[in-house]
Design a binder for these strands. Structure first.
Lengths: 225, 225
DNA sequence: TTTACTAACTGACACTATGTCAGTATAATC
DNA sequence: GATTATACTGACATAGTGTCAGTTAGTAAA
């Protein structure tokens, strides 16, 4: 295994489900086992038995910490969400040339999702098997929709972006990202992230700021100068 | 149930799995039961027992026609594939103003995928639960990748489209469509197709032919005139 | 050091779904 | 009417899930 998937766990301590936690040590061991498992095998073949065989404790112990495998996946989603949202920061919060910012955010996002690819796929796969987790995944995606929608409205007011209904475009662009990452980075061997990054930048920039600015690495402001 | 999901079956007679078919009548009854079931309930709650309870025959009879639920879903994919590919015809094969053609194709695609939304979602959901079906779904998507890739190359040679690596862009744009449809039309109540159509047209046209042509319904040639 | 208490864990059970197979019933053919 | 083939079924073996009564390990008071 590469890409140090375990440092995910440290950042997950904040995000916790409302079940009574017995031993933090064991909980972590289960999460680590899940990450180890899902790095190389798909969610569909993960069973509670196999998972717990990777730990020191028995199968029933699993149910002390999680209702089922889907709730465990929800915990993993919580970990990833933090990491992924952080990568998008620039375009979301910063001001300045939006083409430069969207480039930065997409570059960060591609990097994170390449690094965590198999986990992202595992979570999305698991989401189709359980209503509760599907809702959590949907809420995660919707968070992005809201953010992108807001940013598009802002850019439209500044006349940086053409007038169009931002909501469905935002949602579609987010689906574009999510499932491009899942299909390109979710299975081994993962695709080279660079062509993916370029394709996404092209599509986002063309759609939001016009194709003139999508051609090269240089920004709108630089071109105007 | 609306949108007459059953006329799908007629077109599926060509596409058949290499299992020995006993009675075409029973096979059709099972497929119809699956369509009825999946129109209103997700794939994850469909069991062989429940499915066969909707027919006149017993549960073991199911295994005379399909290896498992995933193979049944593969048959449904075959049906949908025909319908969906037909909708994309204009932009794929016709010549003429590509903006008009891409509009036509996307309009057709949105219409079909809205009509079959729950089935599209059911197939994509099922694909995550089985390696064989996942491969079939991937092959289906790849068919589109090849087609779009080819068309982009053609337009690049004609200088209608900017120079960029077509393959990853084609793949991403297809993911955009597929998972926009699944999330917007896959669950009841389905979204209004019109805003989705407009968003997709905007993104595809902006990316491929520049944002100037994405603004209104009128085409590139009309504008030049 | 023994005793009492509690948190963490486990063996065994009931349940559900799957896929298979030997065998039955029905229809077709001679 | 006997023979064969086809379509179907009851019953079984297996595998996974979630639960619960009960055991073990750890801690604190007497």
């Amino acid at each position: 295994m590469s890409d140090d998937p375990f440092n995910l766990i440290a950042s997950a301590l904040s995000q916790r489900d409302p079940v009574v936690i017995k031993s933090e040590r064991t909980r972590q061991a289960i999460l680590e086992a899940a990450l180890t498992f899902l790095w190389s095998r798909p969610f569909r073949v993960m069973t509670v038995r196999q998972l717990m065989a990777m730990t020191e404790v028995s199968r029933p112990a699993f149910y002390q910490y999680f209702q089922d495998l889907q709730q465990l996946m929800e915990a993993l989603l919580g970990m990833l969400a933090t990491e992924i949202l952080a990568a998008c920061e620039p375009w979301i919060t910063n001001t300045g040339d939006p083409v430069v910012l969207v480039r930065e955010s997409l570059t960060g996002l591609v990097s994170v999702c390449h690094r965590r690819g198999p986990f992202v796929k595992a979570i999305a796969d698991a989401a189709t098997t359980d209503e509760r987790l599907e809702r959590a995944w949907l809420a995660f995606v919707q968070q992005f929709d809201d953010t992108v929608d807001k940013r598009i409205r802002m850019d439209q007011e500044l006349k940086l972006t053409a007038e169009f209904d931002p909501r469905p475009a935002a949602h579609s662009l987010n689906m574009l990202n999510a499932y491009t990452f899942i299909s390109k980075f979710g299975r081994h061997p993962r695709s080279d992230p660079e062509p993916v990054r370029q394709a996404l930048i092209r599509i986002w920039v063309s759609t939001l700021y016009g194709s003139r600015w999508a051609e090269s690495e240089c920004s709108q402001l630089e071109r105007i100068r």
